[in-house]
Design a protein around this nucleic acid. Structure first.
Length: 501
RNA sequence: GCGCCCGUAGCUCAAUUUGGCAGAGCAGGGGACUCUUAAUCCCAAGGUUGAAGGUUCGAGUCCUUCCGGGCGCACCA
C-alpha cells in the first residue's frame, strides 16, 4: 500500500469506516464473499406478515421461508441475537441463536453490521412478546455496508443531508418513501386516465433549437458535431401541436421541462409537466375533463377528495368554483376593469396595489399581474379562472365573445397555479402576428417573451384542427397530495449547489 | 439577486443568553446476558465546533469575509 496508489477509503480517518473495512477483510479471510451475486427469496417481509397475521404469540408456524433485506437493528443477548431486516415492503425480525446456527456460524452472524444486506432461511414463528420472527437456520451476507446508517430513532433530520443523500432519507424516514410512492402512483394514474381515453403518449425533443411554448428563460447548451446552439426545452407545446397537425388527434407527454430561473419552495430548475392536446375540443371541454381527471386520480391515490394541506382543508370535489379573471380582478381592486378602462387609470390602480407597471406593458399584462398579486394567493380550494387577456397568451385562441381575451383558464389551488389550458390558436396568420408582437416585446428587453418559430408556423399553415391543450404541474399536484410545503420534498434529487469547496 | 436565521462526534441534540476545561443519547469497540424490539447493565474510546482571518490573557460563543443550507422577498410554473 506504500507504492503510491492508495485506496482513498483507507485514507479516511473515520474510525467507524476503518472497523468496517477490517470486517470486510475478515469475511474474505473466512472465504466468504462479502458481495454476493444473487439470493433466492421465497417471501417478502410484507407477505410473511400477511400470511401469519393470526399466528398466536409463542407459536411456531412450521413454515420455512427465505427472506432478504438490509439489517436495520441488532439486539445482541449473548448466545441469542435478534435483528430486524428491511426489504422494499417492510421489516421482519429474525432470531439467530448459538443452538440454531452452531459454533462458527453464530460467530459469523455476530460479525454483521447494521446496514449489511443479508439473506436468511428459517422457520417462521411468533415470539413470546408477539413479534413475527424468522428463526435463522442459514444466513448469507449479501452485501457489506461500510458506513453507519443514520440514527435509528430520530432518523435523518438535517434537511441538507436528507436532500444530498436521499438514499439515506428513503431508508430511514418512512414519510419520504411514502411521498415518492404517492408520486409514482399519481404519475401512473394520470397516464392510465389518458390512455383509457385514447390518448397517445409521445416523446418530443428535450433539445430545442428555438425554445418555445412558454414565457421563460431557457438553459443553453451546445452540440459539438453540429456546431449548433441548443436549448433545454421550456415546454413541449409546439411539438405536441405539430403532432396534432400530423393527425395524432389525442396526444400527451408527461416529462421534464427546464427553466433557467430562481429556485424556491415552488420552483425547481427541472420539473415535471403533463401536457395533452385533444383535437376537436375547446377549453370548456378541457375544464370538465380536468375535473374528471384530477378527481379520479386523487380518489385513486388518496381515497378521498377532501384532505388537509398545510393545516387547512382542501376540497377537490367537483364541480370546482369558476370565476372569470376580469371579474375576479375587478372585485379585488374594487373597480370594473376591462379593455375600455383608460391605461392611466390602470397604472394608478396597479401602483396602489403594489404592482409597478413596466414599460411595454399593455392593459392585459397589468390585469394579469394584478390577478397574480391579489387574487391567486387567496384562492384556496380548486378554482377554474376563466378567460385570460390575449396580451399574455400568445398561443391561445381569441375568445369567441371578446377580442381582448383568449379562451384560456388556469386551475388554481392552495394559492398556486396547478394547470393552464386553452383553446389552441390554430390560425397561422393570427399566430404569426402574435409571434411578431412577442418579438417586439423581446426587442424592448423582455427576455421571457416568446421567440418566433418559423417551423411551427409552417406546420400550422398546413392546417391544424380545432384543439384544446392543457398543461398540469405534476410536482405541484404531488405537493398537495403529500402535504409537502416544498417542491424539493416531492422530487427525489432536487437541485442543490455542489457541496465541495 | 436582496434580507433574516442556521452549520458542534457517523447520526440526533446540549453547551452560545452573560467569552472561562466541548457534553449526552444512538451507532461503533471491550465485557455480561438464549424471547428481545429505542433491549438492559458495566468499561473504554470517539471533535480542525463548516472554512479563513480578527478582537481577547482566553473564542463553539464576539467581529469580518467566504462556503453550504433553511425561511421570506424578487422572478417564474
Amino acid at each position: 500500500m506504500d507504492d503510491g496508489v492508495q485506496d482513498p477509503l483507507l485514507q479516511e480517518e473515520n474510525e467507524l469506516l476503518k472497523r468496517r473495512l477490517e470486517k470486510l477483510q475478515a469475511w474474505r479471510q473466512k472465504g466468504i464473499a462479502p458481495y454476493a451475486l444473487r439470493f433466492d427469496r421465497t417471501d417478502s417481509t410484507a407477505r410473511l406478515h400477511e400470511r401469519f397475521r393470526d399466528l398466536p404469540a409463542g407459536e411456531d408456524s412450521g413454515y420455512r421461508t427465505s427472506v432478504a433485506g438490509r439489517l436495520m437493528a441488532l439486539r445482541r443477548h449473548g448466545k441469542a441475537t435478534f435483528a430486524d431486516i428491511m426489504d422494499a415492503e417492510g421489516r421482519i425480525q429474525i432470531l439467530a441463536t448459538l443452538d440454531g446456527l452452531g459454533d462458527p456460524r453464530y460467530e459469523d452472524f455476530l460479525m454483521l453490521d447494521i446496514g449489511d444486506f443479508v439473506g436468511v432461511n428459517g422457520v417462521v414463528f411468533r415470539s413470546k412478546r408477539g413479534e413475527l420472527t424468522v428463526r435463522v437456520e442459514q444466513f448469507s451476507l449479501l452485501s457489506k455496508s461500510l458506513r453507519p446508517l443514520p440514527e435509528k430513532w430520530h432518523g435523518l433530520r438535517d434537511v441538507e443531508l436528507r436532500l444530498r443523500r436521499r438514499y439515506l432519507d428513503l431508508l430511514v424516514n418512512p414519510e419520504t418513501r411514502e411521498r415518492m410512492l404517492i408520486r409514482s402512483r399519481v404519475v401512473k394514474e394520470l397516464r392510465r386516465f389518458l390512455d383509457e381515453r385514447g390518448f397517445l403518449e409521445v416523446e418530443t425533443p428535450m433539445l430545442h433549437p428555438i425554445p418555445g411554448g412558454a414565457a421563460a428563460k431557457p438553459f443553453k447548451t451546445y452540440h459539438n458535431a453540429l456546431g449548433q446552439e441548443l436549448y433545454l426545452r421550456i415546454a413541449p407545446e409546439l411539438y405536441l401541436k405539430r403532432c396534432v397537425v400530423g393527425g395524432l388527434e389525442k396526444v400527451y407527454e408527461l416529462n421534464r421541462n427546464f427553466r433557467n430561473e430562481g429556485i424556491s419552495y415552488k420552483h425547481n430548475p427541472e420539473f415535471t409537466m403533463l401536457e395533452f392536446y385533444w383535437a376537436y375540443a375547446d377549453y370548456n371541454d378541457l375544464a370538465s375533463f380536468l375535473e374528471d381527471m384530477l378527481s379520479e386520480v386523487i380518489l385513486k391515490v388518496k381515497g378521498e377528495l377532501v384532505f388537509p394541506y398545510q393545516g387547512r382543508e382542501l376540497d377537490f370535489r367537483p364541480p370546482w368554483e369558476r370565476v372569470r379573471l376580469l371579474e375576479a380582478v375587478s372585485e379585488a381592486v374594487g373597480t370594473r376593469l376591462g379593455p375600455d378602462t383608460p391605461m392611466e387609470d390602470m397604472v394608478v390602480l396597479a401602483e396602489r396595489h403594489g404592482v409597478s407597471v413596466e414599460k411595454g406593458w399593455g392593459k392585459g399584462k397589468v390585469i394579469a399581474e394584478l390577478f397574480e398579486k391579489l387574487v391567486e394567493p387567496e384562492l384556496w380550494n380548486p378554482t377554474l379562472v376563466m378567460d385570460y387577456p390575449k396580451e399574455v397568451s400568445p398561443l391561445a385562441r381569441e375568445h369567441r365573445d371578446n377580442p381582448f381575451l383568449v379562451e384560456r383558464f388556469e386551475l388554481i389551488a392552495a394559492g398556486r397555479e396547478l394547470a393552464n389550458a386553452f383553446s389552441e390558436l390554430i390560425d397561422p396568420v393570427d399566430q404569426r402576428e402574435r409571434f411578431l408582437e412577442q418579438l417586439r416585446m423581446r426587442e424592448r428587453g423582455d427576455e421571457e417573451a416568446h421567440r418566433l418559430d418559423h417551423d411551427f408556423l409552417l406546420a400550422l399553415e398546413y392546417g391544424m384542427p380545432p384543439t384544446g391543450g392543457l398543461g398540469l404541474g405534476v410536482d405541484r399536484l404531488v405537493m398537495l397530495l403529500t402535504d409537502a410545503h416544498s417542491i424539493r420534498e416531492v422530487i427525489l434529487f432536487p437541485h442543490l449547489r455542489p457541496e465541495e469547496v
